[in-house]
Design a protein around this nucleic acid. Sequence first.
DNA 1: ATATCGTGTAAGAAAAACCTTACATATGAA
DNA 2: TTCATATGTAAGGTTTTTCTTACACGATAT
Lengths: 121, 121
Amino acid sequence: MPEDSTAEGPTGAALLAACSALANPHRLRILGALADGRQYVSLLARQLGMSRPLLHMHLQKLQAAGLVRGELELSEDGRAVKYFEAVPFALEITPQVVKASLPTLPETAERTDHDEKETEQ
Amino acid sequence: MPEDSTAEGPTGAALLAACSALANPHRLRILGALADGRQYVSLLARQLGMSRPLLHMHLQKLQAAGLVRGELELSEDGRAVKYFEAVPFALEITPQVVKASLPTLPETAERTDHDEKETEQ
DNA sequence: ATATCGTGTAAGAAAAACCTTACATATGAA
DNA sequence: TTCATATGTAAGGTTTTTCTTACACGATAT
């Protein structure tokens, strides 16, 4: 068996955050647009044909998930410009990876394994 | 460069469906529970501590995304029992994979590239 | 001063997702 | 028949996400 039991997987929280961030067509386009180069918000909004506040919101979600990174800079002519770039992540998801991530999934009250008397099939 | 340009990636629709299906803690638990063996709905609901109608709904979403598969069987004693199992998928997601999937992402009107006069930085 | 460019964010409507309760069916056993 | 098991699903409310509109600030250029 070619299994490498030391292969690190994402935490449940990280996996959930990443998948949630990717579960939207706009955010997929945004991430795709940043795949081969950084860009600043206003221009990116025009390129993608969406409003700037909307793009801002989606970028926040992508950044919170760690898929994208932003940096505020001052351009030559003095204006504040915020550039975003894709984080070079590589997320491999399989049923086993999901299973392995569960212990670190916060959410909805851990199964407290009290009243479970012979619930086996 | 170890790049294999013929490495197939998921379609935009498939990627979006998969990520949407995984963007929920209950569904992560469900998939994790099915990772090493099939199970039928009612028992799975008890094991996961959730209502059967709720589990049913989540299983539908997982199945629609192709991450899980269900089969209705008749047990020895004649009762109809529906077993679900995890599909052995392996989804690798990177910014480049996302970018490559965009042409096959339906949703929100393809950028029709008309009025784009020198929008370059 | 005013216009233009960049930034951020708050308020509220609209849409989608989530979840519970309730009902309906079928089978086997007491 | 009645109870227990399994299945599926519709109706309705709650919660979350999504999106627009509107406002605010700062700097440069006219």
